[in-house]
Simulated assay, not measured.
Amino acid sequence: MKLGILDQSHIGEGRTAADALAETTRLAQHAEQLGYSRFWMSEHHASAALAHSSPEIMIAHVAAATSRIRVGSGGVMLPHYSTYKVAENFRLLEALHPGRIDLGLGRAPGGMPLATRALQEDKHVDIRKYPEQVADLRGYLVEGLPASHPFAKLEISPAIDTAPEIWLLGSSDESARIAALQGTGYAFAQFFGTPGGMEAIRYYREHFRPSAACGLPRTMAAVLAICADTEEEANLLAMSTDLFFLRLESGLPLNDLPSVKTAVDYPYTEYDMLRIKHARQRRIVGTPAQVKEQLEALAADYSADELLIVSPIHEMEARLKSYRLIAEAFGLHASVPGGDK
């Protein structure tokens, strides 16, 4: 089973967005050295706590700072944008880093309504056209557009012989249906806590239609996992994540990823603790042996070919160590190439 990383560039309490972006680059280099197969970065807008607003720019930066690991978006929120422009961006990234670029696509807004309105200013957006946008991207990047398409004669530059891998990201069965019909890879955001992931992946596999972009079904699950030498230490590190998502779900201001000290000192109510206990059920926290066992079980339950590990840990050194311990538990090797086409 291959392991990758999904990075959201959390801005740690006491640090800046520039610090977070530098940490993202360092983590990608660390991941490559450890043998992780791919490194994806998310898209979030108008967020004081997250630094990734343009995954395309971060892909260019991170791919240039590494040499083997696949680098991609987790994901580009396609309804905001011109499909043609997204195709151009990723064709150029693929030309710069052949065989290493992933185009993960989502249809969520990636921010609050005000940011969505600004992104879509003077543009009519119909979310029902998302499948059509995905089909157009496949046409632009891999298969060519149908002769009846209004842009069939349009050239996508630069002209190259390879193409990015196309994945649909989702937390519902609707994205699985689209991915199966379109013949793309499918990644389920298990860490969101949305139920139905196993059923969505099962549907995808059973109804997959091969395409020039993807000949066989490919599945991933994105999982929040935190690993340390002891269970006690891992649970302590995870408190930053507990408080971050508690604030998010409560509609409280999100200015950063809180430190462990802030999380420990927070005045939790009894109801807060019940919510945290419930949320922990979908997260994997523990020693290397515990984390490996639970990740393997989750991958089996979800029929996932690969897992993307999300590890929001405030202290950077502890975060790097968490990924190292997981890599060692699974016997990853730095010689693993960038991934399969």
Rank of each mutant, 00 (worst) to 15 (best):
P312H: 10
L103K: 02
G193K: 11
A147P: 00
P113L: 07
H52Y: 09
R218D: 08
I160G: 06
Q190L: 11
L325Y: 14
Q190E: 15
S172N: 14
Y130K: 00
S311W: 01
I59G: 03
T24C: 07
A48P: 02
G75M: 11
I284T: 11
D126W: 08
F151C: 04
A212Q: 14
L243D: 07
L3E: 09
D256Y: 14
F39T: 06
Q190R: 13
E23M: 09
I59Y: 11
T116H: 12
H80P: 03
A163W: 01
D136R: 04
F208Y: 13
L34E: 04
D102N: 10
K292N: 11
N255V: 00
Y266A: 13
L96M: 14
Y266G: 10
A187Y: 03
G339L: 11
P258V: 04
T262H: 01
E199D: 15
P79A: 05
N255S: 12
E293A: 14
F330T: 09
E328S: 04
A334R: 14
E94S: 06
S311R: 03
R324E: 15
P337R: 06
E155R: 13
L320W: 04
S157P: 01
A225G: 12
R282W: 12
Q294G: 06
D7P: 00
F191S: 02
S172Q: 07
R283Q: 14
G170H: 04
V260N: 03
T162H: 10
K321E: 14
D229V: 03
I226A: 11
A115M: 09
T230R: 10
A64M: 09
K341H: 13
T219C: 09
S211D: 06
A22H: 10
F191Y: 15
D136S: 15
L237W: 01
L248I: 10
T194I: 10
L114M: 12
T83Y: 01
G339H: 08
L141C: 09
E232Y: 08
M58C: 06
R26L: 15
A31S: 08
E270L: 10
A212Y: 04
Y271Q: 12
R275H: 09
L114I: 12
A65P: 05
I11K: 04
T262N: 03
K292Q: 13
L93Y: 07
R202W: 02
Q294R: 15
R107C: 05
R282T: 14
W40A: 06
S335W: 14
E165Y: 01
P79E: 02
K277W: 08
A300H: 11
Y323F: 15
L34C: 10
R91D: 00
A200Q: 07
D136C: 03
H97Q: 01
D19M: 05
A225E: 12
L114S: 12
G339V: 12
L141R: 02
A228M: 05
A297Y: 12
H314E: 06
L274C: 06
